[in-house]
Computed example of a mutant assay.
Amino acid sequence: MTRRYAARADANQPQIVSALRRAGATVTATHAAGQGFPDLVVGYQGNNFLLEVKDGSKPPSERQLTPDQRDWHRDWRGQKAVVCNIAQAMAACGIELKGVKA
């Protein structure tokens, strides 16, 4: 039985998306895809990155992956990252912060 949680973006997701786009990445928000799929698909310099966004301003107990997300991350054989801020998102995608306001 698949668990279902409300598909809503974390409060910091718009700022992360904006920073990635300013750096030249393409970004598609996929937080509503469900079944644990990550929040963002990012394309940068011919590479794709899957990012799960957690709100770094929340306590660690509220930044935990949901059961569906844990299952998805456990089973996925490709690149994925959990990020809490712009700097982590940029690093996960191999983007230098220079010239991009964090």
Rank of each mutant, 00 (worst) to 15 (best):
M1Q: 02
M1P: 08
T2A: 08
R3C: 04
Y5A: 10
A7E: 04
R8F: 04
D10A: 13
D10M: 10
A11Q: 10
A11G: 06
P14D: 05
P14R: 10
Q15P: 02
I16L: 00
V17K: 08
S18P: 00
A19C: 03
L20F: 03
A23R: 07
A23H: 00
G24E: 03
G24A: 06
V27M: 02
A29G: 08
A29C: 11
T30R: 14
T30E: 05
H31I: 02
H31Y: 13
H31N: 03
A32Q: 07
A33T: 06
G34T: 11
Q35A: 15
Q35G: 03
Q35Y: 11
G36A: 09
F37E: 05
F37Y: 13
P38L: 04
P38K: 08
P38C: 05
L40Y: 11
L40E: 08
L40Q: 12
V41P: 03
V41Q: 13
V42M: 12
G43S: 13
G43Q: 12
Y44H: 15
N47Q: 15
N47K: 15
N48V: 08
L50W: 09
E52V: 07
E52Y: 03
E52Q: 14
D55H: 07
D55Y: 05
D55G: 08
G56V: 09
S57I: 10
S57M: 06
S57E: 12
S57K: 12
K58G: 09
P59V: 11
P60H: 09
P60T: 07
P60F: 06
S61T: 11
S61P: 00
S61H: 06
Q64S: 09
L65H: 08
T66F: 00
P67S: 06
D68P: 14
Q69E: 15
R70D: 07
R70C: 03
R70P: 02
W72H: 11
R74S: 14
R74C: 07
R74K: 15
R74G: 10
W76P: 04
R77G: 09
G78E: 05
G78S: 12
G78A: 11
Q79R: 14
Q79F: 07
A81F: 02
A81W: 07
V83K: 09
V83H: 06
C84T: 13
N85Q: 06
N85A: 08
I86D: 00
I86R: 02
Q88C: 05
A89P: 02
A89D: 00
A91T: 15
A91H: 13
A92H: 13
A92T: 15
A92M: 12
C93S: 11
I95W: 00
K98H: 14
K98I: 15
G99A: 14
G99I: 13
V100P: 08
V100H: 12
V100T: 15
K101I: 15
